[in-house]
Design a protein around this nucleic acid. Structure first.
Lengths: 185, 185
DNA sequence: CCCTTGACTTGTCACCGACAAGATTGCGGG
DNA sequence: CCCGCAATCTTGTCGGTGACAAGTCAAGGG
């Protein structure tokens, strides 16, 4: 039972945004185009997101939530930091549109609580995976966490911007790269 | 002797673009605003860059050239990979506007030869620094190069997007992070 | 049965990127 | 000296976009 005119405009617009960003990049997405895609007037989406920034904020929050779920799920299956890193990279490649928007605070409403929550949850999942390695392996915990996040985030970013594709399988390359940081565990 | 009406519109627009991006992010820069800033009609810059993408391509190429210079200069002073990484990070923080545009191929004319040249030059400087470590330290050279690039690029990106600022001095933190990859040399 | 509230539409404004056409300037050949 | 030419910049315009204001419409509680 669709609750109203469209049914679930909010979801539909978010899904259309993912498609549009995947096709034309985050820069080339317009509220009016999304409205057209879902068959609604040009100001329809505004009601749900208030802003273009509001829409991208919601999309980023959704992305962080998905990432957090993926990381937590991986940690339940293995203690390997390398596999946690591979999960991070896999998320970035599979959810390119979300990932592209997640780390662009200039496109967000910086004070959005949903976004902050989701981001913190993902951050905690990643940091916890590094702590599990134990102090003797990593030296300073905070530095180790930053190093871990940096290497997987850098790899994902560079791959997604086309700077790394020399015919490799990205996940396998990511696995070897992650293994260089904390050894192959 | 200014060669013409404005003198050097091309340079002036590039400089204005750096200011504008630093203030409002790469998304919020408009050719018309830049034209206004340098006191020229709204279509003036078009003649030098053809496109908005053309302008950003030129800016990215300039950025890669500056980065290559900085990396090469560092390699002349030390063999330390860690310091090379710190130079990469320092560049990203000090030339935020350039760096922000350099890794956004969706904003570029992908086939621009100047851009490709400058990028290759910077890439070679970074890769050379890793090779200098010697094979016994790094295992597979290509993987080591990707890992090195990933960790410094990820750190720089995360810092610039406000995900790392917990009161540290970024260069010192970057130094410790880089040292976790190939040891403190 | 109405009327409040939330969901969406219509209309409008200033701004932007791209393009076309014209004006201005400097320069070199005759 | 000056004429033409090319590079540089201006003016005018078009379709598209984000934001806002005001109106329309459906559902559900009183």
């Amino acid at each position: 039972m669709p609750p109203y005119h469209h049914g679930d405009l909010r979801r539909a617009v978010l899904a259309a945004a993912v498609d549009a960003i995947t096709e034309h990049g985050a820069a080339g997405v317009s509220l009016r185009d999304l409205a057209r895609r879902v068959g609604v007037s040009h100001a329809g989406p505004v009601h749900h997101f208030k802003d273009k920034a509001g829409l991208l904020t919601a999309l980023a929050a959704e992305g962080f939530a998905l990432l957090a779920d993926a990381l937590i799920s991986t940690r339940e299956q293995t203690d390997s930091f390398v596999e946690l890193g591979v999960t991070y990279v896999r998320f970035a490649l599979r959810h390119r549109a979300h990932f592209e928007v997640m780390f662009r605070p200039d496109l967000h409403h910086i004070d959005d609580p949903n976004l902050a929550d989701a981001r913190d949850r993902a951050g905690a999942a990643l940091a916890g995976g590094v702590e599990a390695l134990g102090e003797q392996r990593t030296g300073d915990q905070r530095t180790a966490g930053v190093a871990a996040w940096s290497i997987v985030h850098g790899f994902a970013t560079l791959w997604n911007t086309g700077n790394l594709d020399a015919g490799d399988d990205p996940e396998e390359l990511a696995r070897r790269v992650a293994a260089m940081l904390f050894g192959a565990d």
